[in-house]
Amino acid sequence: MGLFGLLFGWPLAPVRGVIRLGELIQEQVEREMSDPAAVRRELEELDRVLAAGLISEEEHAERMQEVLQRMIGAPVQAGAAAPEAENGER
């Protein structure tokens, strides 16, 4: 099967390369988004923008929450219960 795999597999090599490149980019983005230094810089920028009066307190709080959730992973929201539990069905 080695020869057949080589003959029929080589046309798919560019596709496999693009898929692998996408996976590497995704891994790098995930690494950077959870990097404590990057998160700190983003939080400091939010504080600077708030101090300059470019955003409101509410928007500042929302954006801070988004940044922190992105760092630690989005928790399950309290209102996101299963549909059966909301209707009282089991």
Rank of each mutant, 00 (worst) to 15 (best):
F4K: 13
V67Q: 15
E30Y: 01
R90Y: 05
E57C: 00
R90N: 06
I72M: 13
R63D: 08
V29M: 08
E66F: 06
L68Y: 02
E59Y: 08
I19Q: 13
V39I: 07
R16V: 05
E84Q: 10
Q28F: 09
F4E: 10
E30Q: 15
G17K: 14
P83C: 03
P14N: 04
R31A: 14
P36D: 00
M33L: 15
E32M: 05
L46F: 03
L3G: 05
A51T: 10
E84C: 04
R63C: 03
G2I: 12
R90M: 07
A80S: 13
R31D: 06
A13V: 11
L7F: 10
L12Q: 09
M64Y: 06
Q28P: 01
V67R: 12
E23P: 01
A74K: 09
R20K: 00
A52C: 01
R70F: 01
R31M: 01
L12T: 05
R16A: 10
A81V: 11
N87H: 11
G9L: 09
A82T: 04
A37C: 00
F4V: 08
E27T: 10
R70E: 15
I25T: 12
R48P: 02
L43G: 00
A81W: 08
G53S: 06
E66I: 15
S34M: 03
A37N: 08
R41I: 12
Q28V: 10
P14D: 04
E86Y: 11
P83N: 08
V76R: 13
P11F: 09
R90Q: 06
G79I: 05
R20N: 10
I55H: 03
